[in-house]
Design a protein around this nucleic acid. Sequence first.
DNA 1: GTGAAAGCGCTAACAT
DNA 2: ATGTTAGCGCTTTCAC
Lengths: 306, 306
Amino acid sequence: MSEATRRRVKEAARELGYVPQQSGRSLSTRRSRRIGIVVGELSNPFYPALLDPMVRELEAQGYLPVLIHDDGLEEPTTEPIFDGSFDAVLLTTTLLGSSLPGEIERRGIPYVMVNREFVVDRRARSTAVPDNATGASLVADLLVDLGHRAVAMVTGPAETSTGTERLDGFRDALARRGIALHPEAVERVPFSMADGAAATARLLDRRPVKAIFCANDVLAIGALETLARRGLAVPGDVSVVGFDDIPMASLSAIDLSTVAVDLDRLGRRAVRHLADRARDPEVVPTRVVEPVELRLRGTHGPARDY
Amino acid sequence: MSEATRRRVKEAARELGYVPQQSGRSLSTRRSRRIGIVVGELSNPFYPALLDPMVRELEAQGYLPVLIHDDGLEEPTTEPIFDGSFDAVLLTTTLLGSSLPGEIERRGIPYVMVNREFVVDRRARSTAVPDNATGASLVADLLVDLGHRAVAMVTGPAETSTGTERLDGFRDALARRGIALHPEAVERVPFSMADGAAATARLLDRRPVKAIFCANDVLAIGALETLARRGLAVPGDVSVVGFDDIPMASLSAIDLSTVAVDLDRLGRRAVRHLADRARDPEVVPTRVVEPVELRLRGTHGPARDY
DNA sequence: GTGAAAGCGCTAACAT
DNA sequence: ATGTTAGCGCTTTCAC
């Protein structure tokens, strides 16, 4: 076809406002240029922080993000995952016992888990996760080095890899330093600010606590909330350390010491790997581990009163 | 077809989990059960706050939300709006001069603007907006009643109805109380935390300021950031009032006095109206105005040193 | 190079 | 009731 004709046709199409219809195209090509994202509560600041880079990178790759809302209580609506609506799926809320990844796998739909893992057998799966164990051990060493002994942890649900790995990593690292994490010094709650606040209140009521490691920043901000309400000084009376380094953590009014995860990079790498898999099903599933580092701000301090 | 084969086929289909394919269905019914949402930066906490209730309500109405990312710099990718991908569209970033609503209208695609308006002629359009003028006047009266005279404002871009209406409402209400808002006491910047912080710094450098009204909470939190960095006490040295009452505003570490908008209700009402329009094109476009009220917290105080 | 036609998977209208 | 078929709008193949 001649170049001039091509241009004339394009021009005419533009004038008439013709836009090729996606449903027809999808039916014919079996590709939708859409990616489903199973994502948690947007009111939980962690999810926007993770979603933002994924949305940007998807846009750069020419995909449209479709949200599948998972409130953590009832099962999300999974039909669109299986009805051919998406070229691939991003999973950010996967629980350890979930059957969803297996079902998606069985149907040959490319997927990548982000921030969460699904560990059942030794088989490689596509995931992009922070180095939870290392991050937790960094916090343990930090607190021990500061002289803390009355240490507690607020962690997430046992069915979340983040909640479990960060707890295990913390406990193990403390043990290596000869400190036992007392069962009563551990609270397991959903990853929400309100739950973090309530868990901290229970911890404080139960036994003397001088340092609290929270499995993520959202829980940590909840903890700060409770401490502020009780008139306890941070870090004077109690040290608090979080995990993730969500944008809120760096506000001067919060100034949270935390384990920094480059969520931007995590999200983008997850999407790039997903796009690779969507384009070529032969691409081998990869476990991407994002390094972490301590981000020391204003909520940790030396132990006193020993 | 033999009875045995029929049974075998049905059985196999059930076991394999047959799911009707959406692209075929869409092509045939001309309905996608998907709604496009043109939304701003997810890293700007206002958007998750607005998106959250919309996503929930869409889910309740059986629609899937598809994000169209508008970074405010380059035009968002609008093809999917016109290629039949969506039954309707939610617009949350519309600028006053934008041609997008008109184009969408021309093609007969149902849409609702949320938090933003597009005012060109007298014709009714579907919008769901807070009562900007009233909110701004409430703040003006509050500050004047507290004795403030050295008043400034950080507002949003002139092309945003929110930025413009809140500025106009504030200026008019001040004028009614016999106070002029000096042009040098007004900063117009994009609705971001960093811009709010920078604008506040410029304001402070230019003239003595004792009270700052920010056109939204994101700007206000930026302002607090600058004030904290400069060692200025809030509200001792400077009062700050925001607009929207996003969840962050109520954190004890921020405790922002603001004009509360029920974003949850705003988002849900917008979606309900949109769903009505998507189901029946005859439904008349409605301008939904959400009432506002002062939410007095800890960042406003009486004027001193006059 | 150009044009016609088959077929993607579904729904709805129409026979039987 | 049940089964058949046309057609949604696109891409791709195949004739010409």
